[in-house]
Amino acid sequence: MATEVLELDSAQLDEVIKADKALVIFYSKTCGPCKMLRFVLKDIAKDVDGVSIGEIDFDANKDATAKYKVESYPTLLLFKKGEEVKRVKGLQQKPKVLQMINEG
């Protein structure tokens, strides 16, 4: 089982979240917790299947942050077939992200 973490722009984000399950991080390049959470997602990507995982730059994609009402970074959003089902803010540990995916 493995998947890869995709770097997304606003248009790609709209497409990726149509998957059965998609986990997306809004991050900033100037944020330590974001950098760490991106490592966590890379680690998770090695272990999960059937989940699209993407990352989108908060600062470079203001239209996406406005559309999805993301006010701070890092923020993780879980989508199911285009619909947001869960959101958490701040740095999270791997078990909590896995729990989010499994329960979402």
């Binding site: 760490m36 490592f39 966590v40 680690d43 540990q93 791997k94 078990p95």
Partner: peptide, 13 residues
């Protein structure tokens, strides 16, 4: 006691 400080479980490459 001070409890156990939370460890971060993912160590980056």
């Amino acid at each position: 006691d001070l409890g156990v400080t939370e460890q971060f479980l993912t160590i980056p490459d």
